[in-house]
Amino acid sequence: TTIHVGDLTLKYDNPKKAYEIAKKLAKKYNLTVTIKNGKITVT
């Protein structure tokens, strides 16, 4: 599972963990989490 945050690309083997991290990042920086085709993007 890949999380895209701006220019950063973070890879995680565990999709659930990746989603949790994405949610935390989104909350911290007041951003939105988008999931599309298995890719998690924080914008």
Rank of each mutant, 00 (worst) to 15 (best):
T1K: 03
T1Q: 07
T1L: 13
T1G: 10
T2F: 08
T2S: 09
I3S: 03
I3P: 04
H4Y: 11
H4R: 09
V5Q: 02
V5S: 05
V5H: 05
G6Q: 05
G6Y: 09
G6N: 05
G6V: 07
D7S: 15
D7W: 12
D7A: 14
D7V: 10
L8D: 03
L8T: 05
L8E: 03
T9P: 04
T9V: 15
T9E: 12
T9W: 09
T9A: 09
L10A: 03
L10D: 03
L10T: 04
L10C: 15
L10F: 11
K11L: 13
K11P: 05
K11G: 04
Y12H: 03
Y12C: 10
Y12M: 06
Y12F: 15
Y12P: 02
D13L: 09
D13N: 10
D13C: 12
N14R: 02
N14I: 06
N14G: 04
N14Y: 05
N14S: 13
P15H: 09
P15I: 13
P15S: 08
K16G: 09
K16L: 13
K16D: 12
K17N: 05
K17W: 11
K17T: 13
K17E: 12
A18V: 05
Y19G: 02
Y19S: 06
Y19Q: 07
Y19D: 02
E20H: 10
E20L: 11
E20R: 11
E20D: 09
I21S: 05
I21M: 14
I21K: 06
A22D: 00
A22G: 01
A22L: 13
A22S: 02
K23E: 12
K23M: 15
K23G: 04
K23T: 12
K23W: 12
K24A: 13
K24T: 09
K24Y: 15
K24H: 12
K24F: 15
K24W: 15
K24P: 00
L25C: 04
L25N: 00
A26L: 06
A26K: 03
A26M: 05
A26F: 05
A26V: 04
A26D: 00
A26R: 03
K27I: 10
K27R: 10
K27F: 08
K28T: 05
K28R: 10
K28G: 01
Y29T: 00
Y29E: 01
Y29N: 02
Y29Q: 02
N30D: 08
N30H: 12
N30Y: 05
N30V: 02
N30E: 04
L31P: 00
L31S: 03
L31H: 02
L31Y: 05
T32R: 08
T32H: 11
T32K: 11
T32V: 14
V33A: 02
V33K: 00
V33P: 00
V33S: 00
V33F: 06
V33N: 00
V33C: 04
T34K: 10
T34V: 14
T34W: 04
T34Q: 12
T34P: 00
T34E: 10
T34Y: 09
T34L: 10
I35N: 02
I35Y: 06
K36A: 14
K36T: 14
K36P: 01
N37R: 04
N37H: 10
N37T: 06
N37A: 11
G38F: 04
G38K: 02
G38N: 10
G38L: 02
K39M: 15
K39E: 15
K39A: 14
K39N: 13
I40V: 05
I40S: 00
I40Q: 02
T41P: 00
T41F: 15
T41A: 06
T41N: 08
V42W: 05
V42K: 00
T43S: 13
